[in-house]
Amino acid sequence: MHTILKENYGFVFEDKLIDEIAQVATLKDFKEGDVLIDFGDYIKKIPLLISGAIKILREDFDEGELLLYFIEKGETCAMTMACCLGETKSEIRAIAENKGKVVMIPVNFMEEWLGKYKSWRNFVFNSYNNRLKEMLSAIDSLAFLNMDERLMNYLLEKSKINGSKEIKSTHQEIAYDLHTSRVVISRLLKALENQGQIKLHRAIIEIVKS
């Protein structure tokens, strides 16, 4: 555990903090599609992502869910931290975008380390700041971008996170993340292909222009 933390967070945390995390945390493997946090859960542990990517969804009380942002290596979920501090139920669902590993830290250490370690305070505040920017970007996207622009931004983000120009997602899965219908997504994907921005293959979308 200590070696994994040192390799991935040694540039962020003090050695003493890494030692403490290694003593109390657990390492968890996950695979694509695993639900790591669900709506209504009381969150007992804070995730530090070692590898892979996790998408964070917000429940829409009228219908379905809305993609807020992705968590990548070296990051945590600010909304998870907020639930931990407020001892409230989770208002997000965290689903593994691909396989990876995550370090889970018991929540009772979070406040203690806020007062004890400057690096932990900076990490927490930066996480809040970065997630806020991403959520504002998501709001702007909903308010000001056409669905074809939202779709292209989504595909580019998926490509970056997975490190591949080929995106293995069904039209229905994309529609679910973008809170629209499969018919709309299929039509827009075909339009993007006609514009030369993507190529459609069986169960794969290839980014041509980035």
Rank of each mutant, 00 (worst) to 15 (best):
I92M: 02
A143V: 13
C77I: 10
S210I: 12
E59C: 02
F30N: 08
N98A: 08
L192D: 06
E97T: 09
S119M: 05
E91C: 10
R150T: 02
R58C: 02
I205M: 11
G163H: 02
L68K: 08
S141A: 10
V184M: 14
R131Q: 12
K118I: 14
E112K: 10
H201V: 13
G33K: 03
K199D: 13
L49D: 02
E149R: 10
N126W: 06
E193A: 08
Q23D: 09
N108S: 07
I105F: 00
I50Y: 00
M110L: 14
I46V: 10
E7D: 14
G52M: 06
H171I: 07
K209H: 08
T80R: 01
H171K: 09
V183R: 15
N130M: 10
Y117F: 14
F109I: 03
A25R: 00
D34A: 07
K73A: 12
E157H: 13
A25H: 00
V107D: 00
M1Y: 04
P106A: 01
A191H: 05
K118S: 13
S210W: 07
E72H: 15
L132A: 12
K99Q: 12
V183Y: 09
A82R: 15
G115F: 09
A203L: 12
E97F: 03
K160A: 10
L188N: 01
L66T: 14
A96R: 06
F39E: 09
L151E: 02
D15M: 06
G33Y: 04
K168E: 14
A191I: 03
D62Q: 13
L192M: 11
R131L: 09
Y128N: 05
S186Y: 04
V124W: 03
S164T: 11
F109M: 11
Q23L: 07
A96N: 02
H2V: 06
E206K: 13
L200M: 11
K44D: 06
K165F: 06
S137I: 11
L5E: 00
E193Y: 02
C84G: 05
V183D: 08
Y176H: 14
T80V: 14
A191G: 03
N162F: 05
F70N: 14
S164C: 08
S164F: 01
D29L: 11
S90R: 00
K158Y: 06
H201D: 12
K99T: 09
I161M: 12
L142F: 10
P106N: 03
I207Q: 08
D62T: 15
A94M: 11
K73E: 09
G163N: 07
E87C: 04
D60C: 12
G163M: 04
F70D: 11
K158M: 09
K73N: 10
D15A: 14
C77K: 04
A138L: 03
E157W: 08
I174C: 03
G196H: 03
A203I: 12
K190Y: 07
E134S: 15
I185N: 02
F11C: 15
K168R: 15
G100C: 01
K168H: 14
